[in-house]
Design a binder for these strands. Structure first.
Length: 469
RNA sequence: GUCCCCAUCGUCUAGCCUGGUCCAGGACACUGGCCUUUCACGCCAGUAACGUGGGUUCAAAUCCCGCUGGGGACGCCA
């Protein structure tokens, strides 16, 4: 499998954000290139001027960068490469492999419809094929394709795929406005960039024989193809906007780690035995087109979430801090104490599914004033706890060692003296310190908060209980 | 409609090429239990699938054919 000079590419059209299907295609191309020591090229297919935007280009690049999919060349912009396409069209024209066609698009549309109505495949009828017409305003250039025989290729994922040439028609290479069509631009670009492996979505299978015919007409060697099955929505229909969050960047904003995303994307359609989790290095080492499945799959958000939770647990605190702080800032906590944030993260990481989640549960650490959850307040901050809490307050005031170990010792003594179980004070204290009934371990919370804040919050809770009585 | 592709638990998948070791394995989700200062984590257990009909064979999830179902493509979009 290790070959030199392997070149792959990812060619999104900047008509929208990068969605998870595109991201997976990019990932597979990237993995294949990295694994073989080849090159990975980014090319922006912006020949459709009406629909392409700079904003979309930006979003695609941001997404790639967030995922860590770096490219060796590019981004190339097709809109800047018309010379290459025009040269190819000229070559085809002068060798008689292409011809000028004067049929109008309205006319063609009519003929397509009537063919469909008759139950035939709507294809160009070849009206201008043998007319030997020259260029004219409004005319296009078409490829003169073979009518007989078959066009076949060996797909690296799906195996041998064969089309009867009579199914294919004379596709347009150059539009009436002079711009190249998608097929022409892709093939000319892939030739000029030396692409050897084309890994793309399943929806291009039908385009492949047409593109192969262009390679053949140009006398160029055809690259290897690998068509990756599409990603479907939960309703098994093709993924679309109505399925919700599709943009890669949306997952970033929901607090997913890029590596979790990468791992989830890789495992959608590809597998390596029973292994579920892969480092980037393992992905590069173990990926293979051979192990990409043939059938379309549904993107499983729950699995992504599980993966994300796992990677959060595994990540170092300072790395998580970098990711988390923007989310905390977004919810209004500016100029945070980074050390405290790191300590907070250490207590939160095993119980957070996403960074958004974590930022939410971290609030109490940074909040000036604890707001008690109503139910928690009613259940645990009751007058009959007053004596015990006062007793605890007194004892904590005497305590100088405020780390988990020291606190545990203090509590053991305190519990023994009062003949109670930890359970009895832990919940009221938790509510006093965090406002909620669920939080990290009580000693962890106390250590991160520090003696001063603990006593302050405990004091407030005591006053709050007194107000009730 | 025509062409192309696909078909294992709810979902992602292993197994299929090289039939027997598969009354089908893993993961997520779900259910129950254990652990426990709460919530989690962790651990243990459980529910759950070879679309269907035929053929080949001593033997089929695995090979062949039909059917059904799903997806994709049929643009001067990419």
């Amino acid at each position: 499998m290790i070959q030199k000079n392997i070149v792959t590419r990812f060619p999104p059209s900047p008509t929208g954000y990068l969605h998870i299907g595109g991201a997976r295609t990019a990932l597979f191309n990237w993995l294949f290139a990295r694994q073989t020591g080849g090159k990975f090229i980014l090319r922006i297919e912006d020949t459709d001027k009406a629909r392409s935007t700079d904003e979309a280009t930006r979003a695609i690049i941001d997404s790639m960068e967030w995922l860590g999919l770096d490219w060796d060349e590019g981004p190339y912009f097709q809109s800047e490469r018309y010379d290459i396409y025009n040269a190819a069209i000229e070559r085809l024209l002068s060798s008689g492999q292409a011809y000028h066609c004067h049929c109008s698009s309205e006319d063609l549309e009519k003929r397509r419809k009537s063919a469909m109505a008759k139950g035939a495949k709507p294809k160009y009828d070849g009206k201008c094929r043998e007319l030997g017409l020259g260029p004219a305003p409004g005319s296009v250039v078409r490829l003169k394709t073979p009518h007989t025989g078959t066009t076949q290729f060996n797909d690296l994922i799906k195996g041998s795929i064969r089309f009867n040439n009579e199914e294919l028609d004379d596709l347009i290479l150059k539009r009436s406005d002079g711009s190249p069509t998608y097929h022409m631009a892709v093939v000319a670009d892939d030739i000029s960039l030396g692409i050897t492996y084309i890994i793309r979505g399943d929806d291009h299978v039908n385009n492949t024989p047409r593109q192969i015919q262009i390679y053949q007409a140009l006398g160029e060697s055809v690259p290897q193809y690998a068509h990756v099955p599409l990603i479907l929505g939960p309703d098994k229909a093709r993924l679309s906007k109505r399925h919700g969050a599709l943009s890669v960047l949306a997952y970033r904003d929901m607090g997913y780690l890029p590596h979790a995303m990468l791992n989830a994307l890789a495992r959608l359609g590809w597998s390596y035995g029973d292994q579920e989790k892969f480092t980037k290095e393992e992905l590069i080492e173990k990926f293979s087109l051979e192990n990409v499945g043939k059938s379309a799959g549904v993107f499983n958000m729950e699995k992504l979430q599980d993966l994300n939770a796992w990677y959060i647990r595994e990540s170092a605190d300072d790395i998580l801090a970098k990711g988390l702080i923007p989310f905390l800032e977004k919810s209004g906590f500016k100029n945070l104490d980074k050390e405290k944030a790191k300590d907070a993260i250490a207590t939160l990481k095993i119980r957070s599914k996403t960074l958004v989640d974590m930022a939410e549960s971290a609030r109490f650490y940074f909040e000036k004033e604890i707001i008690y959850d109503e139910k928690a307040d009613n259940k645990f901050l009751k007058p009959d706890m007053l004596d015990l809490l006062l007793n605890l307050q007194a004892r904590l005031e005497q305590t100088s060692i405020f780390d988990q170990e020291g606190l545990e010792k203090t509590f053991v003594a305190f519990l023994e003296a009062n003949q109670i179980k930890l359970k009895k004070v832990a919940q009221p204290l938790r509510v006093a310190l965090t406002g909620k009934t669920a939080s990290p371990g009580i000693f962890e919370v106390m250590e991160v908060l520090g003696k001063e804040a603990v006593l302050e919050r405990l004091g407030k809770a005591i006053n709050h209980i007194r107000d009730k009585a």
